[in-house]
């Protein structure tokens, strides 16, 4: 289990500043993405999953800004790079994007430009990171399309994205993310926009590619079922913080944070009796601008310990293979 970390996030803080005030979208996020492993990131809408993904690639748009922390690429190696120290428009950052870290998107419909053929967009990504002639790059692109399971890749390479189905388009998205041979891939809810059968196919494809290429995959989702199937390790996010990390079996067997327990209870089970009421988490995610004091989950927590949870912020989750929870409950941080 103790693979070296390919990407280490430490105390990452991201703020959006506008007329209404400052939104602390990320507030001290730390986790390790281990080489060749899949890290699942779960959390409700708005908890900062996409902001985490984008800040790793330094693609946060104004008025967002990284205000603290580190994003370390190859932290164990001799040439560790802190991505937060790079200029987002620098050469080095451009080489990291696509070349070291690939990104797969949620919306296969809008993530590809309708103005260029699939081939044009993939070949561009290949040539951005490898010194290949046009013809070689095209051959590579066809091979890549075949690899992600697109039938008749020689023909499909000249198709426009709007001529493909959602599933095929997401396969193109995956091919594009892999075009620069990255060793880290971030998939931001890659199957949310797809129907269930296609979802399963895409997840299967991701899993196969991840194993074959030894990719470190950071899989963002709000679907616990996807986590159970895909992840080696899990990080649970709530309001811009990681509240629990754990190896996947442990998370499902013995969740340590009350929020994780609530999330797991909210998963509808096919074993449930018909018309059984779905369990929900009480209350709604507060706006990140109105963060509760103390532990930010306390207003919705069913296991609250009292004043302490309202006043003090629990220590962040311990880094390490067995993980832990950011909570005052006894035994949470072991």
């Amino acid at each position: 289990m103790a693979e070296p970390s390919a990407l280490s996030i430490r105390d990452l803080a991201v703020q959006f500043r506008n007329e209404q005030g400052v939104i602390r979208a990320l507030d001290g996020v730390s986790f390790d993405l281990r080489a060749g492993q899949t890290l699942g990131i779960v959390g409700e809408s708005g908890c900062g999953k996409s902001v985490t993904a984008r800040s790793i690639l330094r693609l946060i748009d104004r008025p967002g800004r990284i205000t603290g922390g580190q994003i370390l690429l190859d932290p164990a190696g001799p040439q560790a790079i802190d991505l937060t120290a790079l200029d987002p428009d620098s050469r080095q950052m451009q080489q990291v994007r696509g070349g070291r870290i690939g990104l797969i998107f949620q919306e296969p419909m809008t993530a590809l430009s309708v103005h260029y053929t699939v081939g044009n967009q993939i070949i561009e990504a290949i040539r951005q990171h490898r010194d290949l002639s046009k013809a070689d790059a095209k051959a590579q692109a066809i091979a890549l399309l075949g690899e992600v399971g697109i039938p008749h890749p020689q023909r499909r390479i000249d198709a426009y994205p709007f001529e493909l189905s959602g599933g095929l388009r997401q396969r193109v998205g995956i091919a594009m993310a892999l075009a620069g041979n990255p060793d880290i891939v971030i998939a931001d809810e890659p199957t949310t926009a797809l129907d269930v059968t296609t979802q399963a196919q895409i997840l299967g494809l991701l899993q196969r590619l991840q194993r074959e290429k030894g990719i470190a995959l950071m899989l963002i989702t709000h679907d616990m079922g996807v986590i159970a199937e895909m992840a080696d390790e899990v990080a649970v996010m709530y309001l811009g913080r990681i509240v629990e990390t754990a190896p996947v079996e442990r998370l499902f067997a013995a969740p340590r944070h009350p929020y994780t327990r609530a999330l797991l209870r909210a998963v509808p089970s096919i074993l449930a009796t018909p018309r059984q009421r779905l369990s929900t988490i009480g209350g709604a995610v507060p706006h990140p601008g109105l963060r509760p004091t103390g532990c930010s989950f306390h207003p919705r927590c069913t296991e609250m310990l009292g004043e302490r949870c309202r006043r003090e912020i629990p220590a962040s989750v311990p880094l390490g293979v067995s993980g832990g929870a950011s909570c005052f409950l006894p035994g949470a941080s072991e």
Partner: peptide
Amino acid sequence: RKPYVVTARAKGLSE
């Protein structure tokens, strides 16, 4: 604001 712009930048293209 559209996602395909992020895609293009995530490929490593210059701004």
